[in-house]
């Protein structure tokens, strides 16, 4: 069941992103020459670099973000690979890698939630459609975060709580087998939603950076 839901979830998300990007490109009359694609990829790579203009806190924030991204990729691969590809539970070395990166990811999300929460809060402007269109290309303050990014950010932060709690709670002798199974399912589905939210969030960030 989880396998099917996960596959459907990922397919819809990726298809949505691809459709959205194509629609955006067609709307702006972009060309698809190989050189343009290469340029885009190089640009995406530069997003991983630390800009010189960043302050110490900015550098720290970016490093934490990149670490969180790395952890997310590792956790997603180790978590979903056995379920989707092998059709079995997470175990063996993959489980060990998963369990090693999980607390790091949790820590990173905690730091990011503290550092990004203010910028990603919903403002009055977000609620007014006119203001939203006005601020689309703005590059200052809280306006940096677009509404989609904000939603996906708060989704990620919100989903991290059941994700972590479900697995940590199962490590204590508190719950019996039935609830253990429930917690495991809660962990899996939270992870799936979080993964989708994280993919969307990353896509939106890339989109924003590209526009700049």
């Amino acid at each position: 069941m989880f396998r099917i839901v996960t596959i459907i979830g990922f397919v819809i998300t990726i298809a949505g992103i691809v459709c959205h990007y194509i629609a955006l490109s067609v709307g702006k009359g972009r060309r698809w020459r190989p050189i343009d694609i290469l340029r885009k990829l190089v640009f995406l790579l530069t997003l991983l670099f630390l800009e010189q203009k960043l302050s110490a806190i900015g550098i720290f924030r970016k490093l934490v973000y990149l670490l969180a991204l790395l952890c997310f990729v590792v956790l997603a691969v180790t978590g979903f690979f056995p379920t989707l590809i092998l059709g079995e539970h997470l175990s063996g070395y993959l489980l060990m890698v998963h369990a090693t990166f999980a607390p790091v990811f949790a820590g990173c999300v905690a730091v990011l939630s503290v550092m990004w929460a203010h910028n990603c809060r919903f403002t009055k402007n977000n609620l007014q459609q006119e203001a939203l269109t006005k601020t689309t290309d703005s590059a200052t303050g809280s306006e940096k975060c677009k509404i989609g990014q904000k939603i996906s950010f708060w989704l990620i932060v919100s989903l991290t709580v059941p994700l972590i709690l479900s697995i940590v709670a199962s490590m204590f002798p508190l719950f019996g087998t039935d609830i253990q199974k429930l917690l495991l399912n809660l962990h899996r589905y939270s992870a799936l939603l979080l993964a989708i939210a994280a993919i969307v969030h990353t896509y939106l960030i890339i989109l924003t950076q590209t526009r700049k």
Binding site: A99, A102, A106, G107, A110, S113, V157, S158, T160, F172
Partner: peptide, 17 residues
């Protein structure tokens, strides 16, 4: 340690939320 880090992180995130 894992329990402490994960639990602590969860508490911070919950507080922010």
């Amino acid at each position: 340690w894992m329990k402490i880090i994960a639990g602590g992180s969860c508490a911070i995130i919950a507080a922010v939320l």
